[in-house]
Design a protein around this nucleic acid. Sequence first.
DNA 1: GCTTTAACATACAAAACTGTTTGTATATTT
DNA 2: AAATATACAAACAGTTTTGTATGTTAAAGC
Lengths: 206, 206
Amino acid sequence: MRRTKAEAEETRHRILDAAERVFYAKGVSNTTLEDVARAAGVSRGAIYWHFANKTDLFLALYNSVKIPQEDMLEPAGAEAGTDALSSIEKAAAEWLDLMEQDEQRQRILSILLRCDYGSDLAPVLERQQEVDAHHTTLLVNAFASAMASGNLDARWTPHSAARALRWMMKGLCSEWLLFGKRFDLATDGREGLRLLFDTFRRSRPH
Amino acid sequence: MRRTKAEAEETRHRILDAAERVFYAKGVSNTTLEDVARAAGVSRGAIYWHFANKTDLFLALYNSVKIPQEDMLEPAGAEAGTDALSSIEKAAAEWLDLMEQDEQRQRILSILLRCDYGSDLAPVLERQQEVDAHHTTLLVNAFASAMASGNLDARWTPHSAARALRWMMKGLCSEWLLFGKRFDLATDGREGLRLLFDTFRRSRPH
DNA sequence: GCTTTAACATACAAAACTGTTTGTATATTT
DNA sequence: AAATATACAAACAGTTTTGTATGTTAAAGC
């Protein structure tokens, strides 16, 4: 029954894949390792071979995917030709597109949004906060450069603008993911972004 | 050991109270009924006397409190003297104040935000959606009346304004509750509201 | 005042999961 | 080709949690 190294890596991947689907369907703390094993077509032994326990499996899943939010706004600000505000808006809108198209992304973010953080997966929460903090920093910097070039309406500060954008994106995604996707994320989200950024630009001197 | 009816009702209340605190501290699916019993100073038997099981206890807790969001914007629109937009903003700001002061409210909303919805507490999710739908309707109506009286900037529709406000409030509360209240909800939230409503009002004809 | 029954506490049985151990067939190494 | 380590499956042991059944006491009802 010994598998080749490539086969082993494949079952490991199958387990992670199954875990993602089952966690999404039943919630993390309501799924047993037996559930994951069945969904992956292996025995619990295989899971315990590759992972220490459910928390470890969850962490491995968490680390195996690119976390949503992490990729947004990475290269923003370095655009040429467009103003800073437009590049932020573009990055946000593209991020929405990505989210709407990529089902794995949707599952991962759904799991993270509604999972019952006990003391065992505190590292996940910490990581989330780090990512959030980093993202906030990037956003504030981007808005600061927009302000420096006179693009940001005077009533807003880089800080308040970054917050407003983050809050809106978060509320938007939460409602879309947790309440059954009852509207078009990319379309309606872009519309919301457009209106918000319109207020950022407002009465700018030309 | 038989208690009077009033005493029984009091222990029932003590159980609900303890459940709220423990659910908040450990997460719903990570708390056992033994935990709740200890926190309430009773035995598990008392819980099983008053409730069928943990799900039933959770539902009872859910129904025993006034759900946040439900009370926001109830009487709005019926204000005299102020314009519709200002009364919406006032209602939202007051709701933030309430949330910041009322610790039970914070616990309840925290529990609802991060609890791991399995198939057993589907009714909770449905109820949430109903409340949200109702809230959205009220908001849209309020913004519609603002538009009718010429207060709402032409770029916004009642629908888009209501969505923007809801998304922002949701993201705001999520971040505040789930990430350790690292900013002042009432102050910073009011600031965000002020800026958002400022854009709603923008270039209104006077 | 006697019976009944509500309001629990306690004890018990049954699952449900978990983590570990053992067995084993096969890659891989030497 | 023999030895060894790998990648599991299957069985096992242990704990945690749940649900129920039973016991007990005092309040209600008559």
